[in-house]
Amino acid sequence: MTITIKKCTLADLRLLQDISYETYNETFKDHNTPENMNAYLKKAFNEKQLEKELANRSSHFFFVYFNNDVAGYLKVNMNDAQSEDMGAESLEIQRIYIKTNYQKLGLGKYLLNQAIEMAIERKKKNIWLGVWEKNDNALSFYKKMGFVQTGAHSFYMGDDEQIDFIMSKTLAL
C-alpha cells in the first residue's frame, strides 16, 4: 500500500474538475434534488471557477494517490481566500473528498494531517472547516480528530439553504 500526495497545478484542472464532480456527487446526491446538485456542481466546479481558485496564491489543492490511483483531494485556504473571515492566524480546510471505493483507508486522516502540517509551518494558530450538519460520518471523524463546533453558517445547495457547522482546532505551535 502506497499513499502519496501531489500539489495540483493549472495543468491538473481537468482531473481536479472530474474528481470534484465525482466525489461531491457521491457524497451528497442522495440528500439533495438533482436540480440543486446540478446547480451547485456547475457553479462550484466549472472550469473558470477552478482556474480562479488554482491561481489564488492563498489556496492550495493536493491530490492523494493510493497505489498510484487518484483517490481524493484536499483544498486549503489562508488569508483572504478563506470562505469566512477567521483572520490571518487561521487556515481553512475547505474540501477533503475521497472517492467512495477509497474510503476507510486512512486517506482522510492523511490529508487532514497534511493541512495541519501546512498550518504549523505557516505559524497558524487555528485550523477550521465547515461541515454539513447532516454529514454524520464527517462530523464524527472531525470530532475524533480533535475539532469542536465553534459556530455555524448558511450554505446554499442550489436554492436550498443548508447549515454547515464550523468546527475548529487550536494548534500547539
Rank of each mutant, 00 (worst) to 15 (best):
R122Q: 14
A138V: 13
F62W: 15
Y97N: 04
N135M: 06
G108D: 08
Q149C: 08
S140Y: 14
V70T: 15
L112K: 09
D159Y: 08
S83D: 14
G72Q: 06
Q162K: 12
L139V: 10
K75Y: 07
Q103S: 03
Y110T: 14
N68R: 14
Q114G: 03
Y97Q: 04
A71P: 05
Y110S: 13
E92K: 03
K125I: 07
G130A: 09
L111A: 09
D69M: 12
F155T: 09
L91G: 06
A152F: 12
D160K: 10
G87W: 08
S140V: 06
F147S: 07
Q162D: 12
K144I: 00
K124N: 11
M118Q: 11
S90R: 07
D159R: 06
T100M: 00
E92M: 02
D85H: 13
E89Q: 12
V131K: 01
K123T: 07
K109P: 01
R95T: 10
T100Q: 14
L91P: 00
S154W: 00
V64K: 02
E89G: 05
Y73P: 05
A152W: 00
F147E: 01
L111M: 13
F165I: 10
E133A: 11
I163G: 00
I116P: 00
V64G: 06
S59G: 05
Y142L: 06
K125R: 15
G106F: 07
K99T: 13
G158T: 04
G108A: 14
Q162V: 11
D159E: 14
V70C: 08
K143P: 01
D69W: 00
K125M: 09
V70H: 09
M118K: 08
I98N: 01
K144D: 02
N67P: 10
N68Q: 15
D160Y: 05
A115R: 04
L129D: 03
I166V: 14
L111C: 03
K125N: 13
Y65Q: 14
T150E: 04
D159G: 06
Y110L: 00
D80P: 09
N101T: 08
V148P: 00
I98C: 01
Y73G: 05
I98F: 00
Y110I: 06
F165H: 12
K143V: 09
I116W: 01
F61D: 04
G151S: 05
M118V: 11
M86W: 12
N135K: 11
M118S: 08
V64R: 02
Q103A: 02
K123C: 11
R95L: 00
F165K: 02
K99M: 04
E161K: 13
Q149N: 09
